[in-house]
Design a binder for these strands. Sequence first.
DNA 1: CTGTATCCGATTGGATACTG
DNA 2: CAGTATCCAATCGGATACAG
Lengths: 137, 137
Amino acid sequence: MTSRDEYGNVFLADCPARLAVEIIADKWAVVVIYGLSDGPLRHGDLVTLIGGISKKVLTQTLRRLQQYGLVSRQAYAEAPPRVEYALTDLGRTLVEPIAMLTRWSEANGGAILDAQDQQAAHDEQAAQADRDELAAT
Amino acid sequence: MTSRDEYGNVFLADCPARLAVEIIADKWAVVVIYGLSDGPLRHGDLVTLIGGISKKVLTQTLRRLQQYGLVSRQAYAEAPPRVEYALTDLGRTLVEPIAMLTRWSEANGGAILDAQDQQAAHDEQAAQADRDELAAT
DNA sequence: CTGTATCCGATTGGATACTG
DNA sequence: CAGTATCCAATCGGATACAG
C-alpha cells in the first residue's frame, strides 16, 4: 500500500478523482462557475462579465456544466427571451475549492511572475553561452 | 464595491487571479504536480506512473511548470543519464489546493455520474418528443 | 535513459451570419 | 436576447524516429 493509494489514484484514467480534473481543466469552466457564485446570471451578462469569451464557447461551457449537473438553465417564455443560468447545489460545492485556487493565485502570483522573469533571464544566458560556444568553433 | 471585487476579478485576462486558472487548466499539469507531491521522480517514472501521457507531452508539461517555478529539474552527469524532477517550495503550496479538488471528486463523483445519467435520459426524452412532433406534421 | 524533431490527424476556438 | 451553423486558422497531442 503506497501513499499513492491514499490519494485515490488520480493517475488511472477511469478513476473518479479525475472528474474534478476533467471539469476544471477548462479555463472557462472555472471562470463561469466563479462568475455564477454570486447568483444567477443571463447569457449576455456572462459574456460581458467574462473578458475574452465568445458566445459560442460560453454556450459550450454552460452545456458541459449542465451535463455535470453543476449549472441549471432556466428559460422564461417572454419577449425578448430571457435565460438565466445558476449554480446547482452540487455546483455550489465547487465554489470553495475554486475560491481556494484564486486565493492561491493572489498570494503567489507575484512569485510566479518573478520565477518567469528569472527563467527568461536564465534562458537568455544559456542562449548567449550557446552563441559563444558556436563562435569558438 | 461589488462582491466580485473582493474575489479579485478573475474575469479580466490580465488579472493575477487567472494565473492559477492558467496553470490548473491543463489536465496533465495537475496530475504531474500531484504525482510529484510524494517526492522527486524521474522522467520515465512519471510516464509509467501517469496513465496515458506521452513522453512529449510530459516534457512539455514539465517545461511549463518549470517556467512557473513550480518544478525544478536536476540532471546528473551519469551514464546512463538521470534526471529528477521535484516540486519547488512554491510548487508544494499548490499541492493542498489540488488535493482539495481530488477530495471533492471523491465526495461528489457519484453525484456527477448520476447527473450525467439523468441528463442523458432527459435528452433522450426530448429527442423522443421531437420525433413525435415531427411525426405529427 | 532523456529528450528533441517531424509528421499528421483531431480538436479547439474565433468571426460571421442567420433563426426564433 | 439567446442560440445555432458554418467556415477556417491555430493549436494539441500521439506516433515514430532520431540524438546526446
